[in-house]
Computed example of a mutant assay.
Amino acid sequence: MKLRKVTAASAAALVLALTATACGGDDSKDDTGSSSSSGGSGGKIKVGIKYDQPGLGLKKPDGSFAGFDVDVATYVAKQLGYKPDQIEFVETKSADRENALARGDVKFIAATYSINDERKQKVDFAGPYLLAHQDLLIKSDSDISKATDLNGKKLCSVTGSTSAQNVQKSIAPKANLKEYSSYSECIAGLQSGAVDAVTTDDSILAGFASQDQYKGKFKLAGLKLSNENYGVGVKKGDSATVDKINKALEQMVSDGSWQKAVDANLGPADYKNEPAPKIGVIVPNAS
């Protein structure tokens, strides 16, 4: 009889433990970078951005974040039901963006993420929300004036970026391409003379050129080497989130917040932005 009482008590305790575990499971992190599956009510959302791109995605010395992509991400997250203090920005470098979404490290990525066919095989995109163009950043006294001048020159870009791929395939096949882990490293190389030019999107280059320590030292070559349609990356198959983000982007444009963010973040560099693109309309590169 004593054995039966102990067994019954143990069974009851086990049932209670299992019930408590099941009830508490709703607050755990899901596979999309959110700590709550019921919107922003008491939960957190993880959003991928760049940490080293002035004017677009920059982590400042005080730990705060600034830039056009940051403003876009914050606006979108708000429309998804999250307040600013519920947003956790996660650094996502170019080479790791697809993996970060596949692993569920973040809910979405707003990080100068150009939409292309190869990437669409791995992730889904909302947008586009900005049309940029690949360009060159060179020293103010540089004699580089066209793409073919890069042949034989030391050119820097970031590992995994479409800019590096464009250079290797068609722009200047004979350029000595240097691939670094960040654009800030490329800019430092340009300043020291380790490289002759840096190539990426004009929006990114304008952000660096406008920094106080670089004013007057660099210039944009003014070449539209490609069309870069920036999209918001989402985990493959998450069409519901794509639809919500597209609606948020449309609202951001219609209420004037989009242009305000462009002017505030890229205006100081005299950046001539293209009009806000229409959702789902990709501007192709010239054939």
Rank of each mutant, 00 (worst) to 15 (best):
V167W: 12
A172T: 05
P173D: 06
K146H: 10
V6P: 07
S184W: 05
Q251S: 14
D117P: 06
E88W: 03
T241I: 02
L130I: 15
D196G: 12
F125E: 09
G237L: 05
A102E: 05
K235Q: 15
S239C: 05
F218H: 06
W258L: 13
G33E: 02
G231L: 06
D196A: 08
K50D: 11
V232T: 01
L266F: 10
N265K: 03
A77I: 00
K244V: 00
L266E: 03
F68R: 00
L225S: 11
I144H: 14
F108S: 04
S254D: 13
F65I: 12
S142D: 00
V15T: 01
V253Y: 12
K83F: 12
T21G: 11
A102P: 10
K153Q: 01
D96Y: 09
D143G: 07
A147D: 04
Y183S: 12
P275G: 09
L150H: 11
G33N: 00
Y214R: 03
A73H: 02
G231W: 00
G63D: 07
G24F: 11
S239Y: 06
N116T: 02
A188T: 13
Q251E: 13
K235Y: 02
D143L: 10
F65T: 05
D202P: 12
V15K: 02
I171T: 13
S161Y: 06
Y271N: 07
Y75Q: 05
L266D: 03
V283P: 11
G233S: 02
T92I: 08
G280C: 10
